Simulated scan of single mutants.
Amino acid sequence: MRKAIKHIFQILLAFSSLNTYSSKVDTVSTYSPSMGKSIKAVVITPDSYASDKKYPVVYLLHGYSGNYADWIRRSPSINQYADQYDVIIVCPDGNYSSWYLDSPMKPESKYETYIAKELVSWVDQNYSTLADRSGRAITGLSMGGHGALSLAIKHQDVYSIAGSMSGGVDIRPFPGNWEISQLLGSIEDFPDRWKSHSVVELAQSHAMDSLEIIMTCGSEDFFFGVNNDLHQILLEKKVPHTYISAPGGHTWDFWVYSIGLEMDFIHEKFQERH
């Protein structure tokens, strides 16, 4: 019996060694000139990382009330994906409630400028990256899903692949939630601001043919309806995209499941180009 148990343990140990990943996780301090402050980020480089090789980069955004460390803490598979797909993964800090936009109400909050311009420039200067849109993807969860699609639509010269997991892609149905009114003013006083900062409106007013898009949302999620609305808009505009709905709510279980699907999609699109 002991020999059998030992044999099983040896098999499991051998199997686990085949699935050991050696990606490197750095917590870095970046600087935002527009906000005049240092901002932390997690940068994950694959085991293959070498300065004489250029790597695509996936920017991965956290949700409301989160921070730069959320993904690495809550989804250990993130390390695996860096090695598996030979990419650099960057998890920036978007402040707990920035919605990744440049706020007209709070001039000190310029997270669109930071993520789409300053951070991208910093990463390209400090890591060996494919420093053009064909080598960049951006995705995120909840507030980060809104941010990823919004930034990609408005900065198609920067990103070529965009994703969203349970994204708040229309903020107008939620005027009292998540401190959005502190960033944009009240929806009653500034309806045009709320409209222009909703992804569903950006999707209607911008050409999106240059983007590869993937969206996931759980069927029990409170953002399920607005994600379906965005899906219909993209269908009507004949914008190619992948939309995956599965049972699940606004939970880390669903996001850990979704990031695997999205990383596979992103990898496939990178492979087609490089």
Rank of each mutant, 00 (worst) to 15 (best):
H231R: 13
R172F: 08
L235S: 00
Y64A: 15
F15T: 15
V199N: 03
L12K: 02
V256R: 00
G163M: 09
P247N: 10
K24P: 04
H250Y: 08
P175I: 06
Y81W: 15
T30W: 02
S166C: 04
L12N: 06
G218M: 12
Q84K: 14
F270A: 14
S98L: 06
S51Y: 08
S75I: 14
P107I: 03
H62S: 11
M263E: 03
F174C: 03
W255A: 09
V199S: 07
S142H: 10
V28S: 04
V57M: 02
V199P: 07
F254P: 05
T45A: 12
H250P: 12
A246Q: 09
E272G: 08
V256E: 06
R273D: 00
W178L: 10
T27E: 15
Y59E: 14
E112S: 07
A116P: 03
E236L: 11
G260F: 03
I44D: 06
F265V: 12
N67C: 12
K40H: 07
Q80Y: 02
S38F: 00
V87E: 04
L18N: 00
G218N: 13
D229K: 11
G167L: 09
L202H: 03
N19R: 04
Y59L: 14
E272P: 01
V256A: 02
I153K: 02
G249T: 02
M165R: 01
E201A: 11
M215K: 03
R73Y: 03
W255D: 11
V169W: 00
S75D: 12
V123G: 05
S103D: 10
F223I: 11
M35V: 02
I72R: 01
H206A: 01
L211T: 01
F222R: 04
N67G: 11
